[in-house]
């Protein structure tokens, strides 16, 4: 197993944060429309967990998908272009913020019906096993990692997914990002089982991990992925906190500024930075330099989106079917 490069992880987390801040700005300027769910505060979950995946592994996620896409190595330019509704976007401007995808990176997309994509992820895992066992494709040893929120664990589709994944012993990691809210509804108001991983415990092993610590996140994700590859499904509950609103337009009536400030001590980027400085792997000066470089990269990314053409109107009528009628 390759050793975790904490400095590289730090840079990716800063990149995600900066991407999101730029999204917020562009949303305020009305260059980005629709719902915009930012990942600020949760960066260590995506970077830690997705870093445990290999190229042949698969990723399925929900609408809060920017961090997962960037952590998987999708280029920021076509992502920003997608947000701008441009033809150079990952979905040619047809999907927007909630539906990033890149087939070539086995990034099977962000889905916007809460809880539903767990079933698609389960189906992809089923197909991997089928390809290996029925079609004799020995190289099919991929694992599916499926991200979702705490709010997604109350509906029936969640239970169907964990139950069937266990029944067929599928290579899948269910990764719940418990950020303590489902939109504005606090965890304890939406579920009686607030230790989310216990909801899946009749079906598969699982655990709660500190999702704000990228090192712990990586270590436990490696364990989970290995378990999924060799034995069957595994459940990770990553504890984290969303430092921005549910979406960019959220007035956040359900918590105060003080509530949020009290949680800034858990900011995964600040935590990692301090750790790297303590270990003499980073200086304040170098950190500033990284910020500057990322900032510069983002300016280019926004410019790319801005200068990209809007989709031709004929695009509205393409790709409804893969074989046109």
């Amino acid at each position: 197993m390759e050793k975790q490069d904490l400095l590289a992880d730090y840079r990716t987390m800063v990149l995600i944060r900066s991407f999101e801040e730029h999204c917020q700005q562009q949303y305020t300027r009305a260059r980005i429309g629709g719902f915009l769910h930012l990942y600020v505060g949760q960066e260590a979950v995506a970077v830690g967990a997705i870093g445990a995946l290999k190229a042949q592994d698969h990723l399925v996620t929900h609408y809060r998908d920017h961090g997962h896409a960037l952590a998987r190595g999708l280029e920021p330019k076509p992502l920003m272009a997608e947000l701008f509704g441009r033809s150079t976007g990952t979905g040619k401007g047809k999907g927007g913020s909630m539906h990033f995808a890149d087939k070539n990176k086995n990034f099977w997309g962000g889905y916007a019906i809460v809880g539903a994509h767990l079933l698609l992820a389960m189906g992809i895992a089923y197909s991997i096993k089928y390809k290996r066992e029925v079609l004799g494709q020995a190289d099919q040893d991929g694992v599916v990692m499926c991200f979702f929120g705490d709010g997604a664990t109350n509906g029936g589709e969640f239970y169907e997914a964990v139950s069937m994944a266990a029944l067929y012993k599928l290579p899948i990691v269910f990764l719940c990002e418990n950020n303590e809210f489902a939109m504005g509804t606090p965890l304890s108001v939406h579920t009686s089982v607030t230790e989310i991983h216990k909801k899946a415990s009749p079906f598969m092993p699982g655990e709660r991990v500190n999702g704000n610590d990228v090192e712990e996140m990586r270590a436990r994700a490696l364990y989970a992925v290995n378990h999924a590859r060799t034995e069957g499904p595994y459940f990770l509950e990553a504890m984290t906190y969303r430092l921005r609103g549910h979406s960019a337009a959220d007035p956040q009536m359900y918590r105060t500024r003080d509530d949020i400030n009290a949680r800034r001590s858990g900011d995964p980027i600040a935590l990692l930075k301090q750790k790297l400085i303590d270990q003499n792997l980073l200086t304040e000066k170098q950190a500033k330099q990284i910020d500057k470089e990322v900032e510069k990269e983002m300016d280019v990314v926004v410019q790319f989106a801005e200068e990209s053409p809007a989709p031709d109107l004929s695009e509205a009528w393409t790709e409804i079917y893969s074989k046109p009628l």
């Binding site: 099977w108 189906g123 992809i124 089923y126 197909s127 089928y130 997914a161």
Partner: peptide, 25 residues
């Protein structure tokens, strides 16, 4: 392996099928 009884979970096995179809089956 080519024909399988599913649990009474219509969304569940519809989703299983859709995921499998996306991945080439």
């Amino acid at each position: 392996e080519r024909i399988k009884d599913m649990p009474i979970a219509e969304a569940g096995y519809a989703g299983l099928g859709i995921g499998a179809a996306m991945n080439g089956l």
